[in-house]
Amino acid sequence: MPSGLLPSHPLDTAMPDLAIIIPSVLNGITTGSLYALIALGLTLIYGVLHIINFAHGALLMVGLYAVWFLNVQLGIDPYWALLIVPPAMFALGYALQRGIIGKASHGRDENILLVTLGLSIVIENLALYVFRSDTRIVDTPYSFETVEFLGAFLPLPKVIAFFGALVTATVLWLLMARTDLGRAIRALAKERKGAELVGINTEHVYAMSFGLGIACLGVAACLLLPSYYVTPQVGHGFVLIAFTIVVLGGMGSFVGALIGGLIIGVVEAMGGLFLGESLGQIGIFVIFILVLMFRPQGLLGHKV
């Protein structure tokens, strides 16, 4: 072993300056709201279809490329793209569930797992072929803007994302609570046979749920890209964290996903400050494991 090359600061735990804790927490909250946006779609899919969607990251990437493409080719601002990308993603999600995922399941979890895995390989590599592997960004007038709050400079795109997450969670909640579709989705999530008996078209409602979940990814993509980038592999960085949030918040709970996202954002920020940025990532997974072991229904979920 090249012993001279071994890092001598693996546990860089120097006490951080206390003055940066408040900005760090605030920043964790705004970053966490972006995670929450990605997790909202996942929790809907998880809560209703009870499937682990391996293609979630790849579909986020599709959304990001859509936003990038609209911006670079047609000059559409990422926030105006909110009118275009989420509906398009909804249609994509509906078609995927109705045309492929639902058909492939044959009533077995492992098939869904395989089919979403296969889809993610297809989507990622098609993106690599079409867009190539270059890192793409959008240049907006507000990319570098910040909002000063409690002594912290919060990037404007992230502040917008924070409110975007609140609005999206509220809209989803209203949709589930107040609409016929929402009632059908909830019925289906609880008891498939019963839902079928009362005449719910399960295939359609499953596809609507999946479509809605993917539409949430479209919203997340519009709000994320101004402060991030897109590559064919970009989704991988968010999938695990989104699952963590879904479990933390309770599968199928929108408020849980929102709060879970904020918590994970703050945990990540604090882990980074106190354990070092690399090792600090461990905090997320430790919390995840502990929550699963001691409160598997999540913070706001129902008993499983």
Binding site: I100, K103, A104, H106, R108, N111, L114, V115, L117, G118, L119, S120, I121, V122, I123, E124, N125, L126, A127, L128, Y129, S133, P232
Partner: peptide
Amino acid sequence: DVPGISLAIYGALLVGMVLFLP
């Protein structure tokens, strides 16, 4: 040697296997 295409087809075959060999 077109980057991406062969892996995309590999993924599609995976999906196909699940569709037809449950």
